[in-house]
Design a binder for these strands. Structure first.
Lengths: 327, 327
DNA sequence: AAGTGTTGCGGAACCGGTTCCGCAACACAA
DNA sequence: TTGTGTTGCGGAACCGGTTCCGCAACACTT
């Protein structure tokens, strides 16, 4: 099981190793020599040593993917999409996890650069000066998913538009007293764009809105749901910034003995698979995580070949109007 | 931003590069030289080129992780655990996805070997002769999670015991007419061990059991739930082999207008987070995926250092007795 | 004073590829 | 026949580390 090297091939084929290398990389090699080398390579199952190659070329066939957490639905689906496409194209995905620490995002940018990945796909939550500095330092194409910044190529979800569209639908249905449960503003896409989209829709018809702020964790939204149970006579709809929050709110309401959508309606955002199979099924916005991953892979590969692509690309969204919101 | 090399350091410090290398790897170097080198390294932010190192050493600080899918709860949580521990210990996780194709598992074993990972953690579904062959060929420590085989170090969930314990509990509560919804047998752990554990518990009290077989997908279980709605007067409990199946069954029952646990009880297996926040909350078995990941990381690292560890290690489980099953 | 270790260090080879350079062989045009 | 190009190939240098070997300097015995 010893590693077969290019030297072995050269020796067995009776040529110089530079010739073998040329054969492998499409240089000029005579037909006769070509045949000999090909035979030897086939017989020995030769595979070039990637380290030796990378040592010289200072490049790999890897694309780094920076994710805030490994166990989020959005991240998982996006990774799937990325991996599929990358594999098709002969690249490998190298996932690194930041455990939701901004500091580690920056660390990992440098780290991936050290590992000579060809490009980086970054599932971001926030973009700071130091991120930009890192991106500039490392001299590697970076594609940002889920957030945007004018200086970084980005592939973003139409959070504002989707939120607006969903909010508008609710307004059309006549909801006028709304609870909005969002997250902190440091997450631009979720904390700001989504909220602003909803608020715009609500304000257009002068609806009454009460805002709560929570985290991305299900548990943290439960008490909010419980608290909301007190005012189900007034408010008719709880709009949540994520499906996880909706889940927590639903639980809280259930704990307090309220039924959905009977006593009050609840909507989510994100489009987790299982929102559909719950009872009641949850009204939400479906974001195409997986397809976005694939597109991101395509885009980063284009960036590698030097193609120019728009700095900012939007994905699509789809309203999922289901049982949890009363018409 | 050009790469600083060991030659640069040597030149700047006025020593031979072999001395620098010795300094870095703990060889004998005089105090004075040591200081000079240290200063230069600090000033230049020198970091050794990993490719050059690996080229010589034929090793990396990477642990390959083979997962059947990127978007399963179990896989995600396990990866989290692995990554955490590996990062602590100065290793990196390299995840490869097989998209549930057995063939690709084997491919990836060889592939990871080619990339000279130090060890491999394999979240398996089934173990064939060809897997064993691959494992033997590559000469790299492999740790199998979730399945077992006498020739491979494995870390397994106590599927049988957990299923037995849960089934026994149901028997104690007096359920006697049971529906079991499982998966195909090719998955030893889920398809066989879990089923057998349950059946054992049921048989001990001569309960009446009807068995259905489905897949790991939520959707495929929905029709089963719908079909079961016909017999809620007879059967009192649907035992599902996974939480996903339980979710589908619940949906099917809901579609048919049945309530849980009013008309019939339903239990899951696996312990997804959100089984707790559903309404009704789902009775299930919690398996410690994340902690298992961490342990797996520890174990593979032990294997690297040549320690001997038991061929087979069991994890724990915890019954989560909740609302979806009537007492 | 001669012999025996020990320590610190430089030089060179090596890991397995890629690439540059130059030479030989051959064809073809002038 | 000489000159110009093209093609095929070997040799050597290089990528950035690690490691083996040998030598010099300096104790420390005996």
């Amino acid at each position: 099981m010893k590693q077969v090297t290019i030297n072995d091939i050269a020796k067995l084929a009776g040529v110089a190793k530079s010739t073998v290398s040329r054969y492998l990389n499409g240089g000029s090699v005579g037909q006769e020599t070509r045949d000999k080398i090909e035979r030897v390579i086939r017989e020995t199952n030769y595979e070039p040593n990637q380290f030796a190659q990378s040592l010289k070329s200072k490049q790999t066939k890897m694309i780094g993917v920076i994710v805030p957490r490994l166990d989020s639905y959005a991240a998982s689906r996006t990774m799937m999409g990325i991996d599929e496409r990358l594999t098709e194209r002969g690249y490998q995905m190298l996932v690194v996890n930041t455990a939701q620490q901004t500091e580690r995002e920056i660390e990992q940018l440098y780290n991936l650069a050290k590992q000579k990945v060809a490009g980086i796909i970054w599932l971001g939550t926030t973009v700071t000066e130091r991120h930009l500095q890192a991106i500039q330092d490392i001299q590697i194409p970076v594609l940002l998913i889920g957030q945007e910044h004018e200086q970084v190529h980005s592939l973003v979800y139409p959070d504002f538009d989707a939120a607006y569209a969903l909010g508008k639908q609710f307004m059309d249905w006549g909801h006028r007293d709304i609870i909005y449960v969002g997250v902190e503003e440091y997450d631009i896409a979720v904390g700001q764009a989504r909220r602003d989209g909803f608020l715009r829709a609500f304000q257009e018809v002068d609806a009454n809105v009460t805002t709560y702020t929570t985290t991305f964790k299900i548990e943290d939204a439960i008490p909010i749901g419980e608290a909301l149970a007190e005012i189900t006579d007034r408010a008719t709809l709880v709009v949540c910034a994520t499906d996880n929050i909706a889940l927590g709110v639903l639980k809280g309401l259930a704990n307090a003995g309220k039924t959905v959508p009977g006593d009050i309606s609840v909507s989510g955002f994100g489009g987790y698979d299982f929102t559909e199979v719950l009872h009641p099924s949850i009204t939400t916005v479906h974001l195409p995580y997986r397809r976005t991953g694939s597109r991101a892979a395509d885009m980063i590969l284009q960036l590698l070949t030097g193609d120019t692509i728009p700095m900012k690309t939007f994905t699509t969204f789809e309203l999922k109007l289901r049982e949890s919101v009363d018409i």
